[in-house]
Design a protein around this nucleic acid. Structure first.
Lengths: 300, 300
DNA sequence: CGGGCACTTGAGGTGCGTCAAGGATTGTGG
DNA sequence: CCACAATCCTTGACGCACCTCAAGTGCCCG
């Protein structure tokens, strides 16, 4: 079940440009990934850094989500209510007003939430699953700018159109709001804006860190940093970083780190052969020498 | 005067790591750059994109700043008051309260505003000059994450320490506020937070664009995109994009685009030889084929 | 069991980094 | 006014990290 994702973004075929890197031709399909499976299901949330999600305060359960999987979503059963945007509404009536605006949306792995350039009519809160944000060049080259995890907010930019695309990496659940209605709420709930502001700041810091990675780190350092992000996110949720699940495909990782699939694969292999990582299948790392990874990542 | 900047960030020498790119050894010095000079002085503000500044509404003057250069700064003479943060204070007493908190700081080219890890006691508004934001790896590799221009806000991230360093590219003037005091103002002036939120969002969108550039564009595309950023910023200030000044050094450009000095220089040369650009000295472009640049940049 | 997809691995090419040298500009001090 | 030192920029030769192309393996699912 760790192969729980696939790619759906379309890459425009581009007849004959010259000195530009590979423009992949990619198939388009939707694939329903069965949820459930064994317990390392927890992995689905395991990302961190530019990979946004709720941090800390993962009260109670050890990371395994015992949520309604039947598509019947209610806010009072919501897994992320304690720390998502919703947590701003302390009072009963405040929350009621908030809840009245929400529309629940379920997405299958690979489905698009919105595309770059779409009018930004809605904003979302991720309550289950994982979303990837990406930007494309006209010839199809893709840069993934981040992964969103439960508790993360989607659509921050209060602009007329989305400046990036968003797709479900795995089956996901989103709470949808009209941008205009959310703005109304700002008037009565200044804490809401405060909360969004903090989130934007966190994203900004993460984005700067990612620029450093993209512009100045080697492939090995990028992979090491990425794995540490995954591990840190697990720690932030009070989960054990081992075994470490890598829910996204090699292609997603490559597009996130500014590499190619082959390079990602090769670096993983080299880390495995040098004893830093032990794999159990391509998307599950059962052992990792985090000290070695930190040296490799040149953190700081 | 277009060589109006230098580098001051320290690059740690790192005895013997192996497969890591060049770790430059850089001198440390402060250099006072005489302001004034001829009129293409306007160039000092010429940046855009991740290069933040005030956009639009550059009422009146054609870009040449007729500001008090005598260090005696008063808010009511401030060049950016109309569109900087200060503009949220409509009322006389509101602004008075705001002004009472400000402390004016003048920086010479190359001087540090703060370094990564410093406690974020202050935030700033840029009223004159240009600031570069950067992050360093332990071995000295640097990534410039953005340039700040008049009207831009510095220190957005309401975190305990700055997550990046900031240095003056040219002689600059900043308005300094205590973070704690600014937060107080939030209570009485919700528009202030709104404004900062919008700014953070703009930066975020720019950061994502820059990630696309860093992760997926070729050297030529990066340079072309960069020049278009410069030109767009000029346009946003109602200035003619030609002649186009490039106030930062090749090293700054390289560290901004994830390249080396030599590559930056070579690409400029190639663009010059192919007739896309015409230079008058290394930091002034007197003619540019913007259509060609847009093709090269793969904008989209 | 067969086709599709993700992943891996190898062989070879290249864009850009590295190393090195030289030119242009500016500021400094005699 | 002229060495000079210090930067910054440019250019060439070369090498390598990563990309490209291609073939093969394993897994999943129909």
């Amino acid at each position: 079940m760790l192969y729980a994702n696939n790619t759906t973004y379309k890459r425009h075929h581009n007849a004959g440009s010259s000195d530009v890197p590979r423009k992949p031709s990619t198939s388009t399909k939707h694939q329903h990934t069965p949820m459930g499976g064994q317990d390392n299901d927890t992995a689905r949330k395991g990302v961190g850094g530019l990979l946004h999600g709720a941090h800390g305060h993962y009260a109670g359960d050890d990371g395994r989500a015992a949520r309604p999987k039947n598509g019947h979503h209610e806010c009072d059963q919501c897994a992320v209510r304690q720390y998502a945007l919703c947590s701003v509404f302390k009072s009963q009536e405040g929350f009621a007003r908030f809840e009245s605006l929400v529309r629940h949306k379920h997405l299958h792995a690979g489905q698009s939430v919105f595309e770059e350039g779409d009018p930004s009519e809605y904003v979302y809160n991720v309550s289950e699953g994982a979303i990837r944000l990406y930007k494309l060049l006209p010839d199809g080259r893709r840069q993934i700018t981040g992964f969103l995890l439960p508790g993360a907010f989607l659509g921050l930019a209060l602009r007329e159109t989305y400046s990036y695309g968003a797709e479900a990496v795995t089956d996901s659940h989103l709470c949808q709001f009209r941008t205009s209605e959310l703005k109304q709420l700002f008037l009565d709930f200044p804490e809401l804006r405060q909360r969004l502001y903090e989130m934007a700041n966190d994203e900004l810091a993460a984005a700067q860190e990612q620029m450093l990675l993209l512009g100045r780190k080697t492939a090995k350092e990028k992979i090491a940093s990425f794995l540490l992000q995954l591990a840190d996110h697990a720690l932030n949720q009070n989960r054990d970083p081992l075994p470490l699940a890598v829910p996204m495909t090699r292609e997603d990782i490559a597009d996130y780190l500014g590499l190619t699939v082959e390079t990602v694969s090769r670096v993983f292999s080299r880390l495995r052969k040098s004893g830093v990582l032990t794999f159990s299948g391509p998307s599950l790392i059962v052992d990792a020498d985090f000290d070695a990874l930190e040296d490799l990542a040149e953190e700081g």
